[in-house]
Nucleic acid binder design. Structure first.
Length: 588
RNA sequence: GGAGCCAUAGCUCAAUUGGUUAGAGCACUGCCCUGUCACGGCAGGGGUUGCGGGUUCGAGUCCCGUUGGCUCCGCCA
């Protein structure tokens, strides 16, 4: 209770009838009957109808005629059971109303540029008036949900013995990974801080410090192009622990996600989550973050077609590639335009084309089926479980290309067929055994798939020694929900010699190692414990829980897809004096 | 860097094969109205059709360019 209110606008019900109350909030709508006036009063928690009757208070009723949308008011009156037949079942407080005895206009409002009580499409305008956009119930609910989730994270991590520790925002640039945001130093001319892409090195140093269990709700920054699920600044639930292995990290995160979904939605998600190796995920779903809400798995057909008459398939297999197919059940009705779209997509991801079979009226309609033997057709029916109405799509090429192409097509077909639109289905899984390194043809070098501190699997260390970099697996794991990567982590390298070996494989010279990573290499020489960790993408997780389609809808003040904040007009130019102090000269 | 979709009143949208004065609902302004909750009634104001150019007797509509928004690819250890 404050001088402004005794209750919030969601709290009053029939059991308060007769009580004198005070509410404060915004005028959501006014229904003026000339005599009696109704106001829906809105605050953070809900709506309550206020009725102004001149027979109760002439002064309040007179004032009510002048109330307009979004005026801020304080109302005092008594809680009254609504007249028979006038209850509003759609309103939590619909049984009662406040009969106003006194009203104060705390502040007037200009006419808002868009209605607060309905969905609005114009995101540009929403961002310019974000403070009004956030008055909308959906947005407030998202912010509340985010708070509830963050609170749960803190409680859970604390219960497991993790310390919340802040790490610097002004930190050091490293060339690995995403593009850094740079902050020029005034005190050290020509030098720059970088905003952290993640608190990766600091949290490993905290392990060397003996903190043993650390977590942080950490702001991270990456200067890359934006997407619906990517902002230049975003939040990670960052976790690191010493004397632990992969299974223990996974168990903690499953426990955390269990508590989050319990607190956020009141549901108990089933534990443990299924685990897939990276190889299996690619082979079966063509993705390292598979959406398992629907089947349509990739099926390998190499064995059945290795001596096929159809040269495209045969030669792909003979040259070390693979032949795979997906069965899009009941999609033989695909239009020519859609086939064309899928073919374009296949080509975009490196395939030469997209072979298909439509099974219609007991007939296989396809330009390639005439090349197939009876045995091959029989194998197709058995392996792909072909039935009337199905559409079979093939990929024959190098393994990576086939997996990627069919994986993308699988998702697009599912989108067209609306296979994954059950909003209540929650398919969690872990993808484990990621490759440690990937070769970049553009740079002609090996790069870390996860990051350069990721530990190779012990049994694969000989492969690393032998230089078979592409086959070395990492102790790295991603957690995936409905085809969205919501987190990833690894067990780290804690020995300075193994770390130095990794850097040399990555093409980081001795000299670069010292200038860029000398601090962490040195720290590892002072008794670094075995350690590992993970980071969850908080924004994406909240987005999925809120059923939002963009992380912008779960951030209070996001940037648009050009990285601009339309509310404050940032980024902006600065005064010449500021640039001079920073030893910066801008090219015109 | 590339591709796609979009842009008409404050908001959400219409406007036939290119056709005469660009409409509707909501919002807004004024008046009326004592039980509404999408209150109702009467009247009214509000438009450089994102911007620039072109084709045409005539362009919201067709063409070219450009700007902005969104989505995707590249990029994001």
């Amino acid at each position: 209770m404050t001088t402004y209110r005794t209750h919030h606008c969601n709290q009053l019900s029939a059991k308060h009838v007769g009580e004198t109350v005070t509410l404060s909030g915004w005028v959501h709508s006014r229904r003026d009957h000339g005599g009696v006036v109704f106001i829906d009063l809105r605050d953070r928690e809900g709506l309550t109808q206020v009725v102004f009757n001149p027979e109760i208070s002439e002064e309040a009723a007179a004032r009510a005629h002048h109330l307009k949308s979004e005026y801020v008011i304080r109302v005092s009156g008594y809680v009254k059971q609504r007249l028979e037949g006038t209850t509003n079942l759609r309103l939590a407080t619909g049984e009662i109303e406040i009969s106003a005895q006194e009203v104060t206009i705390l502040n007037a409002s200009e006419t808002p540029p868009f209605p607060i009580d309905e969905q609005i499409a114009n995101e540009d305008l929403r961002m310019q008036f974000r403070y009004l956009d956030l008055r909308r119930r959906d947005m407030l609910d998202n912010l509340k949900m985010r708070h509830r989730i963050v609170k749960t994270v803190r409680d859970y991590m604390d219960s497991q013995g993790f310390l919340e520790i802040e790490t610097p925002i002004l930190s050091k640039s490293t060339p690995e990974g995403a593009r850094d945001f740079l902050v020029p130093s005034r005190l050290a001319a020509g030098k720059f801080y970088a905003l952290p892409q993640a608190p990766q090195q600091y949290k490993q140093l905290l392990m060397v410090s003996g903190v043993e269990r650390y977590f942080q709700i950490a702001k991270c920054f990456r200067d890359e192009d934006l997407r619906a699920d990517r902002q230049p600044e975003f939040t990670q639930v960052d976790v690191e622990a010493s004397f632990v292995n992969q299974d223990e990290i996974i168990a903690w995160m499953e426990g955390l996600l269990f508590d989050i979904f319990k607190a956020a939605k009141g549901i108990s998600i089933p534990l443990p989550f299924p685990r897939l190796t990276y190889a299996d995920a690619m082979n079966r779903y063509g993705s390292d973050k598979p959406d398992t809400r629907f089947g349509m798995e990739l099926t390998d057909l190499g064995e059945s077609f290795k001596s096929s008459e159809f040269k495209v398939f045969k030669s792909a297999i003979e040259s070390g590639g693979v032949l795979k197919a997906i069965n899009a059940k009941q999609f033989a009705c695909i239009t020519t335009g859609q086939i064309e779209e899928l073919t374009q997509m296949a080509k975009q991801y490196g395939a030469k084309g997209l072979a298909f079979i439509k099974v219609e009226n007991g007939e296989w309609k396809s330009p390639i089926v005439k090349f197939f033997s009876e045995a091959e057709k029989k194998a197709l029916v058995e392996k792909l479980k072909i039935e009337e109405g199905d559409l079979i799509l093939f990929g024959a090429d190098k393994w990576e290309i086939v997996c990627e192409v069919l994986g993308r097509i699988r998702l697009r077909v599912a989108e067209i067929q609306k296979l994954a639109n059950d909003p209540d289905k929650l398919n969690f899984l872990w993808v484990v055994d990621f490759p440690l390194l990937a070769y970049s043809p553009e740079e002609s070098k090996w790069n870390a798939v996860h990051h350069p501190f990721t530990r190779p699997k012990t049994e694969d260390l000989p492969l690393l020694e032998k230089g078979e970099y592409g086959t070395v697996r990492a102790i790295a794991y991603d957690v995936v929900l409905n085809g969205v990567e919501i987190g990833g982590g690894s067990i780290r390298i804690h020995e300075s010699d193994l770390q130095a070996k990794m850097f040399s494989v990555l093409g980081v010279t001795q000299e670069q190692q010292q200038t860029l990573f000398g601090h962490i290499l040195k720290a590892f020489r002072f008794g670094a414990p075995p350690h590992g960790g993970i980071a969850l993408g908080l924004d994406r997780l909240v987005m999925l829980i809120c059923k939002a389609t963009s992380i912008r809808d779960v951030m209070a003040f996001p940037k648009n897809n050009r990285g601009q904040d339309l509310l404050t007009s940032s980024p902006s130019e600065v005064e010449l004096r500021q640039l001079r102090e920073l030893h910066i000269q801008v090219k015109s």
